[in-house]
């Protein structure tokens, strides 16, 4: 892990707001939002639909930009980056896990895991070996040349997790990662998250299921684009 020493803050939001203009009406999806996510944290972000958790996730994932305020990823102000730099940031520092897995259908499992590397300017030549190791790790070592359509939902999601880990990201963003899975499979995925957390990865899990939220280290509740409550468990504060 390449942690740049002086700060343990992975993602920092300062008075961030995101406003959508929908015709005449102004919708403030996120309002004056300030928070710091520390290295190694495992957060569940909860809230009803429309609470702003998707907007927050898009901002954290550098897919969207704040209307006002500052967002820093490992000390880099996103506002100073152009589209290419943002893409580069995503391919190096972020790992995405989606509700519907979002593997690319025409690529086999190994190629899917390697997609973030594909878009790096100077890809690590050892990435393919790492991809095999990760496939092994998520229990798909014997399936690396299967297409996504030949895998079950749980397997696809585990492949997606391997993909999110390939670039050793600063921040793993999971959006309802267990939403499409049955309870049993969902549990397996959550156990995988527990393992990643134990290894010191920083995970942000967006969910509306309380049982899923309970597994996380900390829970943040959103309502109307603001923080409603923050519950920190354990000794971290």
């Amino acid at each position: 892990m390449t942690n740049n020493g002086d700060s343990s803050i992975v993602a920092e939001l300062e008075a961030v707001s995101r406003v959508y203009q929908m015709g005449e009406t102004r919708v403030e999806a996120l309002a004056d939002f300030s928070f710091q996510f520390q290295q190694g944290d495992y957060w569940a972000i909860m809230g009803s639909s429309g609470s702003g958790k998707s907007t927050l996730l898009n901002l954290l994932g550098c897919l969207d930009r704040p209307t006002s305020g500052r967002y820093l990823v490992r000390g880099t102000d996103v506002d100073e980056l152009d589209d290419d730099d943002l893409s580069d940031l995503r391919s190096r520092e972020l790992g995405f896990i989606f509700q519907s897995y979002n593997l690319i259908p025409q690529l086999d499992l190994l190629e899917n895991i390697l997609v973030p590397i594909l878009y790096q300017d100077n890809p690590d030549p050892g990435a393919e070996d790492r991809a095999r190791t990760l496939a092994e790790r998520v229990g798909l070592g014997d399936r690396i040349h299967h297409l996504p359509s030949e895998l079950s939902g749980g397997q696809q999601q585990r492949a997606a997790i391997a993909r999110a880990l390939i670039n050793d990201p600063a921040l793993i963003l999971a959006d309802e990662a267990t939403g499409n899975l049955d309870t049993q499979t969902g549990q397996e995925i959550l156990e995988l998250f527990d393992e990643l957390h134990a290894e010191g990865k920083t995970i942000l899990l967006v969910t509306h299921e309380p049982e899923v939220g309970d597994r996380a280290e900390h829970v943040m509740r959103l309502s109307d684009g603001r923080i409603e409550s923050v519950v920190r468990k354990g000794d971290k504060s």
């Binding site: 589209d83 290419d84 893409s87 995503r90 391919s91 995405f96 997609v115």
Partner: peptide, 10 residues
């Protein structure tokens, strides 16, 4: 998906 995973416009 590709954009989220780091694909640039080009």
């Amino acid at each position: 998906i590709r954009r989220a995973l780091g694909a640039k416009r080009r």
